[in-house]
């Protein structure tokens, strides 16, 4: 372990800023597993409330309705340097949770979208939303499960209708190094977006 007090709850006093990455994906795709593989603290679970004005069928009585849902999310932490802590937030990708991660995306580095190729259609929603409704950069990580057929990258790109520049990597969320690689791919991609004139790789 790099940091002697990694088993502890608290951050070193030197830390001045927090940055965050979102881990998104369908149910059961490995979000919590990935967070657990890289986090220096035991992944924690908390909840966030989402308030939405409800529209449509039920305003017959002419009253303004607001629905509040609470959504569980889990998160982990990596003290990335003496002055910076990285938080990883896992949130489900379904449409009804978009408000949650739209809030989380403010100031975020970007999102890693986990994909299970046996249930590709479970990721269409989240990819559409990211491309059309946010300007948050994202990368796609394909988790391999025992009975996963090995699709080529090109096949997956086409099936998921990814933009040519969107990175796609294979990942085993149970493996620390593999999970770190997926995160590295995302962060390298985001840095590249900030310096488009840089051509070296």
């Amino acid at each position: 372990m790099v940091f002697a007090d990694s088993g502890e709850r608290y951050l070193p006093d030197t830390v001045q800023q927090a940055v965050k990455i979102l881990i998104l994906g369908d149910f059961g795709v490995g979000k919590t597993t990935l967070i657990g593989s890289v986090s220096e603290i035991e992944p924690l679970r908390t909840e966030e409330t989402m308030t939405q004005a409800s529209v449509g069928v039920d305003d017959l009585d002419g009253l303004q309705h607001k629905t509040t849902t609470t959504v569980a999310m889990d998160f982990g932490r990596i003290t990335i340097s003496p002055r910076t802590a990285l938080y990883l937030f896992g949130a489900p990708g379904q449409q009804r949770f978009w408000n949650l991660w739209a809030g989380l995306s403010k100031g975020a580095v970007g999102a890693l979208v986990l994909i299970d190729t046996r249930r590709l259609e479970g990721s269409f929603d989240v990819l559409n939303q990211l491309e059309l409704q946010t300007d948050m950069p994202f990368a796609v990580a394909v988790n391999h499960f025992p009975d996963t057929y090995a699709h080529s990258e090109q096949e997956l790109r086409e099936a998921l209708d990814l933009l040519p520049h969107t990175p796609i990597v294979n990942c085993d969320a149970r493996d620390r190094a593999s999970s770190l690689d997926a995160l590295i791919t995302l962060v390298a991609y985001v840095s590249h977006l900030l310096v488009p004139q840089e051509t070296t790789s």
Binding site: I80, V187, V190
Partner: peptide, 17 residues
């Protein structure tokens, strides 16, 4: 995010790797 912070995150992740 500024580029320095991103680079810091990238370096940190690579170090852990």
């Amino acid at each position: 995010l500024d580029l320095n912070t991103l680079q810091e995150v990238l370096d940190g992740l690579r170090r852990l790797r």
